[in-house]
Amino acid sequence: MDLQDIEDLIARVALKDRDAFSKLYDATSAKLFGVALRVLNNKAAAEDAMQDSYVKIWKNAHRYQSNGLSPMTWLITITRNTSIDRLRARRKGHQDIDMPGFELAARGPSPEQSAIAASEAKRLMGCLDELEGDRGAALRGAYLEGKSYAELAETFAVPLNTMRTWLRRGLISLRACMSR
């Protein structure tokens, strides 16, 4: 199943086609479960997060706008954010996981071509490794482990404001590297 097939399935899910949803699940659930497992590091929690993600996908497929890049970005972003919300709820010891799913919102009435090229996104890993000091590791910690500025500051034993400045400079270098 290629990316165009997945995009077509999402379009049919938007029309409440259960058969298409079933096929979309079969085609993408292993990747999404892998992502949820990586973030949550716990099988039961990852299964719950994956299920919550598919409920969001079913309910919001009509908001998906093709932007000429991979439809997997949309699916993975939903799963990553749902998993991070669950992880944070667990850390804080409460169950309030009803964070607004901003990643689900439509971008506007017409699909916008993304400003970034697919080849640019592929450079991420190399560029993360090129970043000064531990900045690449800190960005990975934020994206894959849901660490906030405060938690990263603690992990890397630097003051909060230093971490903030540090990461913001890291993001600027990252973008410059990726668009090179």
């Binding site: 292993a30 892998g34 972003t77 916008e112 993304s114 996104a121 991420l124 890993m125 973008r175």
Partner: peptide
Amino acid sequence: VADWQERLVAMTDDIAAVRPS
């Protein structure tokens, strides 16, 4: 925001697929 989602999602590229039950 959408552009950054597109850039950063590459961090999941090398995460292995795991078939759920």
